Amino acid sequence: MNSTPTTPRIAIVGAGPGGLTCARVLQRHGVTVTVHDRESGPDVRDQGGSLDLHEDNGQIALREAGLLDAFLRASRPEGQEMRQLDPAGTVLFHHRPEEGERFKPEIDRGHLRDLLLDSLQPGTVRWGRTLISVDGPRGGPRRLRFADGTTVEADLVIGADGAWSKVRRAVSDAVPEYTGVSFLEAWFDDVDRRHPEIAALVGQGSAAGADGERGLFAQRNGGDHIRVYVIQKAAADWITDAGLTAQDTEGIRALLLKRFQAWSPALRRLITDNDGPYVHRPLHALPVPHVWRQDPAVTLLGDAAHLMPPLGVGVNLAMLDACELALAVARTDTVAEAVRVYEQTMIPRAHETQRLLDGGAEDLLSTELPDFAAADGP
Results as ranks from 00 to 15, higher is better:
D118G: 05
S119N: 12
S119I: 07
S119Y: 07
L120V: 08
Q121G: 00
Q121C: 00
G123M: 08
T124C: 13
W127Y: 13
W127L: 10
G128V: 09
R129D: 03
R129P: 02
I132M: 13
V134P: 08
G136E: 10
G136I: 12
G136Y: 10
G136W: 11
G139P: 09
G139V: 12
R142E: 11
R142K: 14
L144C: 07
R145P: 03
R145F: 01
D148L: 11
D148W: 09
D148H: 11
G149P: 11
G149M: 08
T150R: 14
T151E: 15
V152P: 02
D155R: 01
L156A: 04
L156W: 07
V157W: 08
V157E: 07
V157K: 04
I158A: 00
G159D: 00
A160V: 06
A163H: 06
A163E: 13
S165K: 05
S165E: 05
K166R: 15
V167A: 03
V167N: 01
R169W: 06
A170D: 03
A170R: 11
V171K: 01
S172F: 02
S172N: 06
S172P: 08
D173M: 02
V175R: 14
Y178N: 04
Y178R: 03
S182A: 15
S182E: 10
S182M: 09
S182Y: 06
L184F: 06
E185M: 13
E185T: 13
A186Y: 06
A186V: 09
D190G: 13
D192W: 03
R193W: 04
R194F: 12
R194S: 15
R194H: 15
R194G: 03
H195I: 04
H195V: 06
P196V: 08
P196W: 09
A199Y: 02
A200K: 11
A200M: 04
L201Y: 05
V202N: 06
V202R: 03
Q204W: 08
S206V: 05
S206Y: 04
A207W: 03
A207N: 07
A210F: 08
G212E: 07
G212I: 09
E213Y: 02
E213P: 04
G215W: 05
L216K: 03
F217P: 00
A218V: 12
A218N: 11
Q219Y: 03
Q219M: 14
R220Y: 09
G222P: 00
D224S: 12
H225P: 00
I226V: 15
I226L: 14
R227A: 00
R227V: 11
R227S: 06
V230H: 08
Q232L: 15
K233D: 13
A235M: 01
W238E: 07
W238Q: 09
I239C: 00
I239D: 01
T245I: 01
Q247P: 00
D248G: 08
D248H: 10
T249G: 02
E250F: 11
E250S: 15
I252N: 02
R253M: 14
A254T: 14
L255T: 07
L255D: 11
L256D: 03
L256K: 02
L257M: 15
L257D: 12
F260Y: 15
F260H: 06
F260A: 05
Q261P: 00
A262S: 15
W263E: 06
